Computed example of a mutant assay.
Amino acid sequence: MKQLALDLQLPEPCSFDDYLIGPNMEAYLALQALADGGGSEGCVYLWGGAGAGKTHLLKATVQRAMVNGLYAHYWDAATTPLDELAHGYELLAVDHVDGLDEEGQIRLFGLINAQREAGRMILTAGRLPPARQLLREDLTTRLGWGLVFEIGEADDEDKAALLQHRARARGCVVDETVCRWLVTHHSRDLGALTRLLDQLDHAALAAGRPLTLPFVRETLREQTPPSVA
């Protein structure tokens, strides 16, 4: 059996059309309005656990804003420290604010102030609500200035259905049984599952076999390192 092609990285979908709304309709509609320039509040904070879909919503908002002609940008604070280049966007989305160091927190505090004073929009996201973030008190106050939405996870059946839809949109023919099994036995993060399906599809093509549940189990079992006694 050939190893999975771990370097296979197709772009993840990040539009509102490809977002599994679940319990997040209010946030979904508010962010669409924000991207359309018609939101009543220009400062929005999203919070929720890993894999809930916060990053997808941030990227979808930026993508829609750019389609509408706005100067918008997604900034992942977990991988790129905030600097002066973050200023000046009509809509700025800053992800993973809970991981900011002291300097990054000061920069974000200034960014929120600058965006509001200029009548521009800022969208931020982290794992905890503002009051529970282990950040500077003045920053947590700013994060709670505008709209705050908890982003909850959809149920497993909806995730499996969307995973199958994403797979087919990327040219991967997969049975819903495989998608349900992956959601319940492997991961609940749709981004990670989408990438995994890409890899499994590539492995199935290389092996000349259909992408069935037995093939998936066999392939993932061979990828799991043996336990050390």
Rank of each mutant, 00 (worst) to 15 (best):
L123E: 08
T124M: 15
A125E: 11
G126K: 01
R127P: 01
L128S: 12
L128P: 00
P129N: 08
P129Y: 07
P129I: 05
P130E: 09
R132K: 11
Q133H: 06
Q133I: 10
L134T: 03
L134Y: 00
L135C: 07
R136M: 09
D138P: 09
L139K: 12
L139S: 07
R142V: 09
R142A: 15
L143H: 13
L143F: 12
W145S: 10
W145D: 06
G146A: 08
G146Q: 05
V148M: 03
F149T: 02
F149V: 00
E150N: 05
E150S: 07
G152W: 07
E153G: 06
E153H: 11
A154C: 13
A154K: 01
A154Q: 06
D155I: 01
D156E: 14
D156W: 00
D158P: 00
K159A: 08
K159C: 13
K159I: 01
A161D: 14
A161N: 09
L162E: 04
L163V: 12
L163F: 13
L163Q: 11
R166A: 10
R166C: 09
R166Q: 12
A167Q: 07
A167F: 05
A167S: 13
R168G: 00
A169N: 12
A169Y: 00
A169M: 14
C172W: 06
C172K: 04
V173D: 15
V174A: 08
V174Q: 05
D175K: 02
D175S: 15
D175T: 04
E176Y: 04
E176A: 09
E176D: 03
T177R: 10
T177V: 11
C179T: 08
R180L: 02
W181S: 02
W181R: 05
W181A: 02
L182K: 01
V183S: 06
T184C: 14
H185W: 01
H185E: 14
H185Y: 02
S187N: 14
S187E: 11
